[in-house]
Design a protein around this nucleic acid. Structure first.
Lengths: 133, 133
DNA sequence: TTTGACATTGGATTTAACTCCAAGCTTTAT
DNA sequence: ATAAAGCTTGGAGTTAAATCCAATGTCAAA
């Protein structure tokens, strides 16, 4: 079991962030010590890794909480409900991937077209590059 | 030329959002009417489209402002500087694409493995799905 | 010509996601 | 055994990105 400081340090977080996640129903420690210290298990750490990955990918804490609710009482849900919700998220991510990929390609196109030399960037319009799609 | 309300409506924004962007150096209207009304040109609209696309893709307004600064005085920059900055952004986006793709595949893997039937979702662990990579 | 929609400004409020602080326990290291 | 480091709670403060409000000005239409 990790105390709050150890878990926070392991994932480069402020201990207050973990307390914040607890307060908002995302991650409660498995146990408390005699004296009231929060004690996090390996499963809690796994949950935290999930939260951090989802956050890195652009989900809000509210959305992450929704996914975690399913996780929390898996046995209460029917398989079809979980499947539907997860597939909806996948669709959401696909849309985001498409947008991001397009943005990437446009910028790459600009970089490719750009001579890269010491002369003025007169013709390197980021705006135009992104309008072309 | 569009007045603030028209431009806002066209892109489903609150007029205050456009004023906010102006205040923060992202998008100033090309002109003002006699009476002081903001007047936006087609070029301003293009710039706005850029801002919205970049935002949708996860850039902060500060980052977008950085890219727009280049745009604003292209002729002051050397082509190599623009190219370097744009390529750095592309690298950033590539990292994000990789993360997002991984997250997507994990969730998809879970959905695929899930029977999708009316029985309990006991074995459909989102956490486990994401740990596998 | 006056009503209603739209605009201006400055400043206050909101929301998400932290981050900090104070006062007071607990644990660890010297 | 005592000081330093770490923990507790409740509550305040911060930052980004809006959004709202009030008082006032403009303008097209009935």
């Amino acid at each position: 079991m990790y105390r709050i400081g150890a878990l926070a340090k392991a994932y480069r977080l402020n201990p207050d962030t973990l307390r914040y996640y607890e307060k908002h129903g995302l991650l409660a420690p498995t146990a408390r010590s005699e004296s009231g210290y929060r004690l996090y298990s390996e499963a809690d750490a796994q949950k935290l890794r999930f939260i951090l990955k989802a956050k890195a990918v652009g989900f809000t804490l509210a959305e992450i909480g929704e996914l975690l609710t399913i996780e929390a009482n898996r046995s209460q849900w029917a398989c079809q409900d979980v499947k539907a919700l997860v597939e909806a998220k996948v669709t959401q991510i696909d849309a985001k991937l498409a947008q991001l990929g397009q943005f990437r390609d446009s910028l790459q196109g600009l970089a490719d077209a750009c001579c890269g030399g010491p002369e003025s960037a007169e013709h390197c319009s980021i705006l135009d590059a992104l309008e072309v799609q």
